[in-house]
Design a protein around this nucleic acid. Structure first.
Length: 1160
RNA sequence: GCCCCGGUGGUGGAAUUGGUAGACACGCAGGACUUAAAAUCCUGUGACCCGCAACGGUCGUAACGGUUCAACUCCGUUCCGGGGCACCA
């Protein structure tokens, strides 16, 4: 009897379908048997049903999970293994725009095709649990969960999501003292209970919106005016739309967001409790991007009031506000010197004034315009002079007077003390100073934003506060408002020009730019510790959205800062001594600090802590933990997605109530966008206004009528439905709740989740957040959705190329394109052709060119190009092109093609055996456009589902990416045929029996050798399957069948057990032979064979005997043998004696059950 | 640039804990069966050397170095490939 896989597979698929063999019961609704079994949840990543259909890469993970599910079922688990569709999405909408087919229709068709292809492969999904995110019965609960998020806030005190009612109650009781507003930029920062109660509804709701887990805000999107739509980042190329090449600009649109940032720490912490691959965990933690450091506020020094206009100004003008820029460099050095060598009195006074001791921040030897004052409190506009000896002559007095007048003009009040006074009455002097300081208003309080620069400050975030003394410049994001405020007159033009340049660039270009660009603002920040003045630059590499939008640059310790400094000739100071070589930055943390003021001699690792403490003490900075992750944008201006259950009135968002769900998508006639960047739903007034006069719950729970209520016209993004689908599978038909708590308590977490790395940060992070929120709110009992994640590798395509000659000057034989074989191309490129061969090649090519007559020299050879073209891999055998098929390909586009190859250097149509066309090849992504897709349907038709399943697994480890090569599939198919022959004689050998081959299995007792093969196989299959090593599993089956064939074993006792082992991998043939052997019931529920060590234990072992680690011979020894006995035997061994050459071995190493090594 | 993962015959890959490198399969070569082909079966197949052969030897897991009785496996340096982040402070 033949192995008729087509009949067998069809028969059993129908049978399993009819008997509902894959139906899985929940404990409450089940037959009563289910709850007795332990549960196991195996999940495949939610597929989007694309129109392109499956290629061989797609089922890889599905086959792996199918094998694992069936394996667990045989091992006695109640296995949940569902499948469904992430059916909302952009491609269907795009298809609708282009072809006018409703997304629901095309999606339905795609699903049908997808399902047919899946069924072909024989998966064990419980299709009664299928879900589709686009069905109202499903998205009702997506909307419901959205409302849970909308009606919740993140309580930072309890560190979990809680109902917003609790927050409102807290506001009424104590204002927002305990729950400060998460968004520090919001116009209201703190309020009392009374203030809260006094706010009108709009204000209250605006405040609450700042807390909700799902909230509405404004965000920048890629807006394409020509298309009237918002584009994804990858739809924008070089600042224009990918489709059509229309300009794309940044536009602020109202958007919904999920406050995932509140979960940043828990998302990080959770990674430690789940089994994801290291690279996956790392991608997630990189995305979250937690860093700790400090926020430091630098005062900004006033820029020159007038631009420098040359150096030769009359001396009389020297006392005016001039020449400052030109003397600045000099003064800076002087200021430094004065600081380092203070007079005795200055130093005495400084000890009382420093470090905020007066309650005010005092600087010494500070430059104001072109003057250096001894001490200054910039905030209170007071300067303090200690009269030095050289201040006493006439000329000096005039200078001092002018200076006092000038400082007064700038708003400074000058205090002067004689040296004696300071020396003898220090306390009184200090007291006077403090009184004066306290009596003056703070500049910061009186200065209006955007006005006077004095008091303006710059806050940076740094992860390396220990390098504070190495700051040589600042870089701030060009789009910060501060830039306008601080730019100097001289730099205004340059700054504005640069900002215009930055605005013209897309986010992508800006970030991808390798070139160093930037402009000096003309302003300086002041290092709070040493008063050093630090130039402030703007550059596109600093993004406004991260940290404070400003960095302090430490060129000796940061490569990027170093390059920037070099590029713009900014002097670099070295605070890490020998660690910095002047050639490149060194980001070490091991250095002992130098040139670092009070930190000199401190190891860097300790310095950060000291600096942070100091900053906090001086109230000019604070410890800060920062995250790279932003809140997740949760709305799309599209049609094909879940509508938001939100109505707007007077700018207030009112949630629909639960009994108004699902809010269904209306049918639309056009998928084009609505006005003002709104989605297509904005075009349907009937739908938008359906809740006119809606009764909505307002604050105390009273119902209030909302007139003029208009529905939200955005829809939810793709990840809305996929963030919680694993829960719906547990209880897919429940119309009371999204998933009954008792059911989710039973099925609990997904035990094994299989899918590609492309979802590393999107889907996997969002669903983890949703799970945590649902957990916080008490809807489920676990806070991580996926216990273990297995990444499947990509199956890449192996593309084939033909090389066409294309003439730049025209081809006289354009209908008969010329193709050059790959062997000829490569020899030509590698200069391996002889002169004659080269000439012959060009002769052939040139004959075809239109102006051949003009071609008199070889120089003209550049007038043609050799263009590689993708050719369908299915008409190439290995690298050999099927020329006949190629002529028919693409409706005969190449019907008259001519081919030349190296061996013939002429038309391939010659009869020579070398007359074949060789294609080039390359491994690329599998894609229809590259003609390198292989359709699983074709392979299943040719070899059967069992062969296909096993071959996909045999290719290599599931998690490794590898190119597809159909060639090896024969080997797996042969294996199944060989297995079949353990049960049946081949048809020709049993011709007498007619078509039905002769069954040859027997009921004889199995021999020890046969049992050994079986149990060895049981052990290995069990281990390999458990650890997802399916490729070695398949090998093990091959070895077992080879060995049983050699033993001529046809014993039922053995074969039956083997079939059970094989069931997860090749269910159809296993079930067929199982039933042929006369077994009742399905093999799907057979008991997994029990491994018994007694059949495989051996009393002897063939030991490798190595001399100095190199194996030289083998010895069969008893396992119970002792070291002394081994030495005895080894030393008498002929081979060993030969190697010893009469010497004594130094040592003989004997590792039981492993090996023997003789050391000479 | 930084971080992670990987590199083994002509090919996919195996070697699970440091213990016989190359299991299993493809491909290739030779043979059997056949009028022939397909199918099936058998033999060989990392490279090199010696040799009639048996037997044997040398090298070999990207490169170099180290630890060890013993290294694909551990450590260091370098090169190459893939992925992630990308002037992210």
């Amino acid at each position: 009897m033949e192995y008729k896989f087509r009949e067998i597979e069809k028969k059993w698929q129908e049978h399993w379908n009819a008997t509902k063999a894959y139906k899985v019961s929940n404990p409450s609704t089940g037959s009563g048997q289910a709850p007795l079994k332990p549960k196991f949840y195996v999940l495949d990543m939610f597929p989007y049903p694309s129109g392109a259909g499956l290629h061989v890469g797609h089922p890889l993970g599905y086959i792996a999970s199918d094998i694992y599910s069936r394996f667990k079922r045989l091992k006695g688990f109640n296995v949940l293994h569902p499948m469904g569709y992430d059916a909302f999405g952009l491609p269907a909408e795009q298809y609708a725009i282009e072809h006018g087919v409703h997304p629901a229709v095309s999606t339905e068709q795609n699903i049908a095709n997808f399902r047919r292809q899946l069924d072909n492969i024989g998966f064990c999904y419980d299709w009664d649990r299928e879900v589709r995110t686009c069905e109202p019965g499903y998205y009702k609960w997506t909307q419901w969960i959205f409302l849970q998020l909308f009606n919740s806030f993140y309580n930072r005190v309890t560190n979990k999501a809680e109902k917003i009612d609790g927050l409102i109650a807290a506001f009424e009781k104590e204002g927002n003292a305990i729950h400060p507003i998460p968004n520090s930029q919001f116009q209201i920062t703190s309020f009392t209970a009374d203030e809260w109660k006094a706010f009108d509804e709009k204000t209250q709701q605006d405040i609450l919106m700042q807390y909700r887990l799902a909230y509405c805000g404004y965000g920048e999107v890629n807006w394409c005016e020509a298309l009237g739509t918002v584009l994804a980042n990858d739809e924008v190329v070089n600042g224009v739309s990918e489709r059509g090449g229309h300009p794309v600009v940044k536009k602020k649109l109202r958007q919904w967001y999920l406050r995932i940032t509140e979960y940043a720490d828990r998302l990080l912490e959770g990674l430690e409790r789940i089994e994801f691959s290291e690279s996956m965990k790392e991608m997630q933690s990189n995305w979250i991007g937690k860093s700790s450091g400090a926020e430091i506020t630098f005062d900004i020094k006033k820029p020159p009031l007038t631009p420098p206009e040359g150096e030769n100004r009359p001396a009389s003008e020297l006392h005016r506000q001039t020449a400052r820029a030109s003397t600045y460099g000099l003064l800076k050095e002087l200021s430094k010197e004065l600081k380092q060598s203070p007079t005795e009195e200055e130093n005495m006074l400084w000890q009382y004034l420093r470090s905020h001791k007066t309650g005010h921040h005092i600087r010494r030897q500070h430059i104001i315009d072109q003057y250096i004052v001894d001490f200054v409190c910039l905030d209170r506009r007071v300067t303090i002079e200690v009269d030095g000896g050289y201040h006493n002559n006439e000329e000096q007095r005039k200078y001092d007077e002018a200076r006092t007048a000038f400082l007064n003009e700038l708003g400074f009040e000058e205090m002067r003390f004689a040296n004696e006074e300071v020396k003898q009455n220090t306390d009184a002097v200090v007291e006077k100073i403090i009184q004066k300081l306290n009596s003056k208003p703070s500049v910061r309080q009186v200065s209006s934003p955007g006005g006077d620069l004095e008091g303006a400050s710059l806050t940076v975030y740094t992860t390396r506060p220990d390098t504070i003394f190495g700051v040589d410049f600042m870089v701030i994001a060009p789009e910060l408002d501060l830039v306008d405020q601080i730019k100097s007159a001289a730099q205004t033009a340059a700054v504005d020009e640069y900002i215009a340049y930055v605005k013209s660039r897309s986010e992508r270009e800006r970030q991808a730019e390798k070139k160093i660009t930037g402009v000096f603002t003309g302003a300086y920040a002041v290092n709070p510790f040493d008063g050093r003045e630090i130039p402030i630059w703007i550059s596109e590499y600093v993004l406004a959205g991260y940290g404070t939008g400003a960095i302090m640059a430490v060129p000796c310790g940061d490569e990027r800062d170093f390059k920037f400094a070099k590029h713009f000739n900014i002097p670099i100071s070295n605070i890490i001594g020998k660690y910095f070589n002047g050639e490149e930055a060194n980001a070490t943390k091991d250095a002992i600090l130098e040139n670092s003021g009070f930190l000199d001699g401190t190891p860097m690792r300790e310095a950060a802590e000291i600096v942070i403490n100091k900053l906090e003490e001086l109230e000019i900075g604070k410890r800060k933990v920062n995250y790279k992750m932003r809140d997740a944008a949760f709305s799309r201006q599209r049609y094909w997605g879940e509508p938001f259950p939100i109505v707007w009135k007077n700018g207030i968002a009112y949630p629909l109530s639960e009994d108004q769900l699902p809010l269904t998508l209306p049918n639309v006639e056009s998928y084009s966008p609505g006005p003002d960047g709104e989605g297509p739903l904005a075009n349907i007034p009937d739908w938008i206004n359906q809740f006119e006069g809606l009764q909505v719950p307002s604050f105390g729970g009273d119902l209030g009528e909302v007139r003029g209520a208009a529905l939200e016209t955005n829809t939810m993004p793709g990840y809305a439905g996929s963030s919680w689908y694993f829960l719906r599978y547990m209880d897919p038909h429940n119309d009371q709740t999204f998933c009954d708590r008792s059911v989710s308590d039973y099925w609990n977490q997904v035990d094994i989740y299989i899918g590609g790395t492309e979802h590393a940060v999107g889907h996997l992070l969002y669903s983890r957040m949703w799970t945590k929120a649902l957990y916080d709110l008490g809807h489920i009992g676990f806070d991580e959705p996926f216990k273990k994640l297995v990444n499947q590798g990509m199956i890449q395509g192996s593309s084939r190329f033909v090389y066409r000659v294309v003439f730049t000057k025209g081809d006289i034989n354009n209908d008969a394109p010329l193709f050059i074989s790959f062997n000829l191309i490569s020899k030509f490129l590698n200069k391996q052709l002889t002169v004659e061969e080269t000439n012959e090649l060009f002769q052939i090519i040139r004959e075809r060119a239109e102006d051949y007559a003009d071609w008199t020299s070889v120089k003209n050879k550049v007038d043609f190009l050799i263009t590689p073209l993708h050719v369908d891999v299915n008409i190439v055998d290995g690298n050999v092109l099927d020329i006949e098929a190629f002529r028919k390909w693409r409706n005969g586009e190449f019907a008259n093609a001519r081919f030349i190859n190296y061996y013939t250097l002429s038309d391939l149509d010659s009869e020579k055996p070398e007359g074949i066309y060789l294609c080039g090849s390359e491994v690329e992504k599998m894609s229809k456009s590259k003609f390198n897709t292989v359709n699983p349907d074709d392979l299943v038709t040719k070899y059967g589902a069992d062969t296909f399943r096993m071959y996909e697994m045999f290719l290599g480890p599931v998690e490794i990416s590898k190119p597809w090569d159909t060639k090896g599939i024969e080997g797996v198919h042969r294996f199944l045929k060989k297995l079949w022959r353990l049960f049946y004689l081949p048809a020709e050998a049993s011709a007498k029996e007619g078509d039905e081959g002769k069954a040859i299995w027997t009921n004889e007792k199995a021999t020890d050798a046969e049992l050994k093969v079986l149990h060895k196989t049981i052990k290995k299959i069990e281990d390999d399957t458990e650890r997802f090593s399916f490729n070695t599993g398949v090998s093990t089956f091959m070895i077992a069948v080879n060995e049983l064939s050699d033993l001529k074993c046809h014993k039922k006792e053995i074969l039956e057990q083997l079939l059970i082992l094989l069931t997860p991998y090749a269910p159809h043939v296993s079930e067929e032979l199982w039933s042929k052997l006369g077994n009742g019931g399905s093999i799907l529920d057979a008991a997994f064979p029990k491994f018994e060590a007694k059949y495989v234990t051996e009393s002897t072992k063939d030991y490798p005997v190595a001399i100095n680690g190199k194996t030289r011979t083998e010895l069969t020894l008893d396992l119970s043998i002792t070291q002394a006995e081994v030495e005895q035997i080894v030393l008498n061994n002929e081979v060993v004696l030969k190697w010893l050459e009469g010497k004594q071995p130094k040592k003989i190493i004997y590792v039981k059950n492993k090996m023997i090594n003789v050391v000479i």
